[in-house]
Design a protein around this nucleic acid. Structure first.
Lengths: 338, 338
DNA sequence: CGAAATTAATCAAACGTTTGCGTAGTTTTT
DNA sequence: AAAAACTACGCAAACGTTTGATTAATTTCG
């Protein structure tokens, strides 16, 4: 019943030559004559020979596999990035294995360890929300396993990373609102622990001060990104002595919570909302953010994968400078509203 | 710089015993004395020994890897299912490799071949839209690689599959509309080539005839699931001599296209819409389908993965009956509208 | 006390492929 | 015609681990 796959040895035996010659023949090694080579290839073909990957991986000490660790596979951003990573890896004949940390630091540590044991050739990581120590990644250095971070990256430069400049994006968002005439702009930011929150704050301040406006810290409200937290933040704005006329939100979900609440409070028309992520459904909404920052997950995934594959195949990974790639983000104006 | 991982041989040499003893010691083989066993384990621990997976896989001829082939990683349904598959596999210490067919038959065939070469222990597949031949899967039989289909399954029973009964779901949807008093119900169905379209039609007819209503075939319109196609279908209903008061759509996207168009045509209040998928954003919309069929992608992924792992580890896969698992679907009433 | 059983370990082969080195046999060079 | 070079292939080791067969030493039992 169970057909055993053909091996090089069998081909060798049939052709009365050595396995090494078969191997070389199949790889077009110059030391195999054209006649023999063709005989080998033809027989291999007709026996439907398929190299035993496990054996090759083992022999070469390379797995042609890259690991991807990220918080949540089912989030739109990540699933899109994954799609790109998969596509790029396939082109270069690499296999991808995924694992999700579910935003848990302990789990992330375990997964890194597991990936190492799987002997992945390299790792692509988007770190979990509560990761603040990075020695589990540093340990990979001694095994020559390169790591490229993407999107959720550690807050320092001496690693390889691909990310979107949240700061620049925030500047764009705020500038857009300023250009539309808004002078009091609120921001619902994420928890202060997140680097991304820091960046948003920086961008906000940069845009405000560049335009010679006074920065009012009370217009930035930190929020846990839940619906409840968003409502609390919304109330702060509604009751603010300098009530803002526009609000920048941490992401599209927060924007949705916000708009839902603003509608309920019957003040939805008093605010323009700009948000991050540009999720596909945004354009289907009735009351939408007037714009959303597109962070190009596919592109980010693509770049990250290519950098990693470069690192894997670079002869001297030690001497490499760090790839610090910023993907530009774009403010997508919701044309329905124009 | 590059630390070579510790091997069994090295441990053996240090302890002056044979590699086989080390291997057995680490695996609690009874023929290794307790004292030696502990010595082995301690040394392994302190040298941070990690078994070389590639070597084990090669030696065992098993990869502890399952392959997953599906149309599009970034679709919500699939990314959720994947999330489940990953979680289940991890529990049983299996690794998962993914690949996307992008709904292309040729690509699917290639991927199946690639997975076979990767020597996956089993395969989880959601077939591409234009797959109508299945010999690329049948070829796996002779290699003892079990296949479990999920969600998008072939139209016959002699395979393992997990899916949602679209037919039952459609019955539920139509019954719900009938209970709400609708007597003329339209359906925007998918292309006739899709098995899922067939099932929806069956369900529709079953509900209609069970309630002793006359079945009017012109109330089912096939559609290519694009926005353009949806608009054409919508127009057919709007201009229908028996204009329906409710419409069942193939999925949430079609529902969105439909509602968008109905709004533009100023007739959105003349129709109740019920749809499939229950995408998370549905509840954020202003004009939503009044209900959507939840197909529990996480559950489906979970079940499919477990069945596959069962098959992989069953001693006699040949004698197995076929798993034909139907996951119940639920009609989720959009409470915002009630 | 000798045979049988148990314990604790070793030996060697095997998994499939790759690759450095060696070696016939042939051709080219001087 | 001898030396050098090239062609086409074979040999054997190596990668790390597992496992069936074997052996040596110890214990148990009648």
């Amino acid at each position: 019943m169970s057909a055993k796959p053909t091996t090089i040895k069998e081909i060798a035996k049939i052709l009365n030559i050595s396995p090494s010659s078969v191997s070389r023949g199949l790889h077009d090694h110059p030391s195999i004559g054209a006649v023999t080579r063709e005989k080998i290839k033809q027989l291999a073909q007709s026996l439907n020979y398929q190299p035993n990957n496990a054996a090759i991986l083992f022999q070469k000490g390379k797995t042609y596999t890259i690991g991807v660790i990220l918080p949540e596979l089912s989030e739109h951003f990540f699933s899109t990035a994954i799609s790109a990573i998969e596509d790029e890896a396939l082109k270069k004949n690499y296999t991808v294995i995924f694992a999700q940390s579910h935003d848990d630091y302990e789990q992330e540590v375990k997964l890194v360890e597991k990936m190492k044991n799987q002997r992945v050739d390299g790792l692509l990581v988007s770190i979990s929300k509560d990761t603040s120590k990075f020695d589990h990644f540093e340990r990979l250095n001694s095994f020559n396993i390169p790591v490229v971070f993407f999107d959720r990256i550690p807050p320092f430069k001496n690693v390889h990373y691909v990310a979107c400049s949240i700061e620049n994006a925030t500047v764009k968002a705020v500038n857009y609102l300023l250009k539309k005439g808004h002078r009091t702009i609120g921001m619902i930011n994420g928890p202060t622990t997140l680097f991304a929150s820091e960046e948003r704050k920086e961008g906000y301040m940069q845009a405000i001060t560049f335009n010679r406006l006074k920065f009012d810290p009370s217009l930035i409200v930190n929020c846990d990104l839940t619906e409840k937290g968003t409502i609390e933040a919304a109330n702060q704005f509604i009751n603010h002595k300098r009530k803002p006329t526009a609000i920048v939100t941490f992401n599209d979900y927060v924007a949705l919570f916000l708009i839902k609440y603003l509608k309920k409070a019957n003040v939805v028309n008093e605010f323009d909302v700009v948000s991050f992520a540009n999720l596909p459904f945004i354009s289907y909404l009735d009351h939408t953010p007037i714009a959303s920052i597109e962070q190009y997950p596919y592109l980010q995934g693509q770049k990250a994968a290519n950098i990693l594959l470069d690192l894997i195949n670079s002869p001297n990974p030690e001497s490499q400078a760090y790839y610090n790639t910023l993907v530009e983000s774009d403010l997508v104006i919701n044309s329905e509203k124009l």
